[in-house]
Computed example of a mutant assay.
Amino acid sequence: MIKKKQHFVSQFYLKNWAGKDDRLFALINNNVMPMKTREVAHSNYFYKVDGVNDDERAFLLKEVSSLAEPIKSMISGLINSFHIIHKFSIDVNGETEESRIIKTNAIEDVYCIVEELALPSLDIIKKEEYGEIDIFGYSYVVRYINFQLARTPAVKNKIKNSTESLLRDKNIRFDSYYMIYSLIIAERISLQLINKLYKLVVINNKTNINLITNDNPVKNLNPIDKVEVKLFLPLSPKQGLLLEPSELPDEKVKTPLEDLSKSQYYLSVTDCYDQDYISKLNLITWNNKERSAFSYKESDLKILIS
């Protein structure tokens, strides 16, 4: 079935801010109102790719060559499928129902797979059973954060503004290229952070102030001119995730991942009782939104509007 309404912030994620009736509070056009998670952070056919031409295929396959398996083969397969669909639509002057489903659903399906792989570790974090997260669970959470970073309209528009004219000179259409490239960006950043053994910090919010989120929820807290990133993702009203550079010596960072069986190498937990710090994180999240912000309580957003 073709998915018309496609979320760029997943409903699974947004449900962390929803009450029993599956409603959260959303800032829409400067008004705060209760809305169901399925009604926010989506756009019709957002992930649709109409196909890739010969130049787009060659360019994307070159970009994907630096990735690791199995993501490398998965994205390469998508590129080739979209290329076949493009040639078929030209040669036959039409398309099949199967090709329409692939064009519309395939990219979102990859994001869903990444989310499903991270679910067990995210559930462990929510239950505060951190010792059960192994190095592979850690790597799935790193991907979860970076794939969410790459999939929003805000990030797409930033990249479009800086690259569209350059790509056009190479016969590459931005809208056909970017949805596939967003997967490549997300995996490339993930591999860099995993290989550097970035620390995943769980912030347990012990204050009476709830964390909020938005339609562009991952924020780099470091200045843009700094090489190393420090990524923050609100996970729920009472938990947030930070990915920050490792403090381990280089020889330990270079240890093969499967040999790092102790979670203290890549995971830490902090209980935060500092209301000013939580308020600061909320202000950062508020300022990083593109159009909408979301909260568990109406007052969590209204205090920021004022």
Score class of each variant (00 low, 15 high):
89 S>N: 11
85 I>A: 06
101 I>N: 08
173 R>P: 00
134 D>L: 06
147 F>G: 04
173 R>A: 05
94 G>L: 06
160 K>P: 02
105 N>L: 07
79 I>A: 04
93 N>Q: 11
145 I>H: 05
173 R>K: 14
111 Y>Q: 04
92 V>K: 11
147 F>C: 03
169 D>T: 12
83 H>N: 13
110 V>P: 01
146 N>E: 10
167 L>Q: 03
136 F>A: 05
174 F>E: 04
77 G>K: 03
175 D>V: 07
111 Y>N: 07
154 A>T: 09
176 S>W: 03
66 S>G: 10
186 A>C: 01
146 N>T: 12
122 L>P: 06
141 V>F: 04
141 V>A: 03
144 Y>L: 10
172 I>F: 05
149 L>H: 14
121 S>W: 02
116 E>T: 02
139 S>H: 12
165 S>I: 07
129 E>H: 02
85 I>K: 03
177 Y>D: 00
170 K>L: 12
192 Q>E: 14
147 F>L: 01
105 N>G: 06
155 V>Q: 13
165 S>R: 05
139 S>C: 09
182 S>D: 05
70 P>L: 10
91 D>M: 15
153 P>K: 09
159 I>N: 10
139 S>T: 14
160 K>F: 04
173 R>G: 08
160 K>V: 00
78 L>M: 14
157 N>S: 12
170 K>E: 15
104 T>D: 13
88 F>S: 10
163 T>L: 14
177 Y>I: 04
171 N>E: 09
135 I>K: 07
138 Y>N: 03
131 G>Y: 12
141 V>Q: 04
74 M>C: 04
73 S>N: 10
119 L>C: 07
88 F>N: 14
151 R>H: 04
183 L>F: 01
192 Q>N: 15
150 A>K: 08
101 I>H: 07
127 K>I: 01
90 I>T: 10
161 N>Y: 06
90 I>F: 08
74 M>F: 05
114 V>I: 15
163 T>Q: 13
129 E>W: 00
115 E>S: 09
86 H>L: 02
140 Y>I: 06
155 V>R: 14
173 R>M: 09
83 H>Y: 12
124 I>T: 15
107 I>Y: 02
168 R>T: 11
107 I>G: 00
126 K>N: 06
76 S>Q: 13
186 A>L: 07
86 H>R: 11
101 I>A: 09
172 I>K: 08
163 T>D: 10
67 L>M: 01
104 T>G: 06
88 F>G: 01
81 S>A: 11
103 K>T: 08
140 Y>N: 15
69 E>F: 06
167 L>K: 06
84 I>C: 01
190 S>F: 06
168 R>W: 09
132 E>I: 00
99 S>A: 13
106 A>I: 09
98 E>K: 13
87 K>F: 03
117 L>C: 04
161 N>R: 09
68 A>P: 00
161 N>G: 14
181 Y>I: 00
83 H>E: 00
186 A>N: 01
70 P>Q: 11
85 I>W: 00
113 I>A: 07
155 V>I: 15
136 F>N: 12
170 K>M: 11
157 N>I: 11
144 Y>Q: 11
109 D>S: 12
90 I>L: 14
167 L>F: 01
182 S>A: 15
153 P>M: 08
176 S>M: 06
114 V>Y: 10
101 I>T: 13
136 F>D: 14
66 S>L: 08
134 D>W: 00
173 R>T: 14
118 A>D: 03
173 R>F: 11
156 K>I: 01
156 K>P: 02
78 L>Q: 13
99 S>E: 15
128 E>G: 05
184 I>Q: 01
86 H>I: 05
181 Y>Q: 06
